[in-house]
Design a protein around this nucleic acid. Structure first.
Length: 214
DNA sequence: AACTCGGGGCA
DNA sequence: TGCCCAGAGTT
């Protein structure tokens, strides 16, 4: 694909997934960080169900760090891994206050040193909050990038670097949901719906599927 | 690299 | 019902 075609590819993704489009709800850098931490291995919809009450009770790290793990856990019992996440968001809040004056740090090292924050979450924050050209690569984006050839690589880091070169810098910030939703709902792990994919012509995936007969 | 956490979504 | 996660941490 040429750079121009890639641009069209990314823009076309916007209409390529079904109604299931969701987005994490947040109002501040801190609540975004917590929401992303909670979203690991969970859907945005399930996270959005618990964050209003959680953020109403603890809108800042200064307040959230004072919650016990049990108190924090009571807000998020409906999402998976909630025990780990309750511990992480309380600890993460304390770390923000102690290390960064209650602010969300803007470097990869500082972010990944926080409880519950790994590479993917750090990339979300760096990109969305600080406009750095990083691409969060989850399992869906990893699969999509390797199948289509948009960014092939054996490791997440390798795929990341490829995508960062391939995607125009000014579009990276908005490309996250497109890539993830495209991977989740079109370029699915099983039974991909290749007839809906705007990259099907360039795709290297050997078992491309056709639209089923109605 | 393999294992664990876990309620939800989906077949 | 069983399988697989919009990952991160530990071994």
């Amino acid at each position: 694909m040429t750079a121009e075609e890639r641009l069209v590819f990314l823009k076309d993704l916007e209409g390529a997934w079904p109604d299931a489009q969701t987005e994490l709800h947040y109002t501040t850098p801190f609540t975004l960080l917590v929401a992303v931490v909670l979203s690991a291995q969970a859907t945005d919809a399930s996270v959005n169900k618990v964050t209003p009450a959680l953020f109403a009770a603890a809108p800042t790290p200064q307040v959230m760090m004072q919650l016990s793990e049990e108190e924090a856990g009571a807000y998020i019992r409906t999402i998976g891994l909630w025990r780990n996440k309750a511990r992480n968001i309380v600890e993460l809040s304390r770390q923000l206050v102690e290390r960064h004056g209650g602010e969300v740090p803007d470097t990869r090292d500082d972010l990944e040193a926080l409880a519950g924050v790994g590479r993917k979450t750090a990339n979300v924050i760096l990109s969305v909050l600080f406009h750095q050209p990083t691409v969060p690569v989850d399992t869906h984006v990893f699969r999509l990038a390797n199948r289509t050839g948009l960014g092939r690589g054996k490791t997440v880091e390798a795929v990341e670097k490829k995508l960062e070169k391939v995607i125009p810098t000014r579009m990276i910030r908005d490309s996250h949901h497109w890539l993830i939703l495209q991977g989740r709902y079109v370029c699915k792990a099983r039974k991909p719906e290749c007839w809906r994919c705007v990259a099907a012509n360039d795709c290297l995936y050997p078992d491309k599927t056709d639209r089923p007969e109605i």
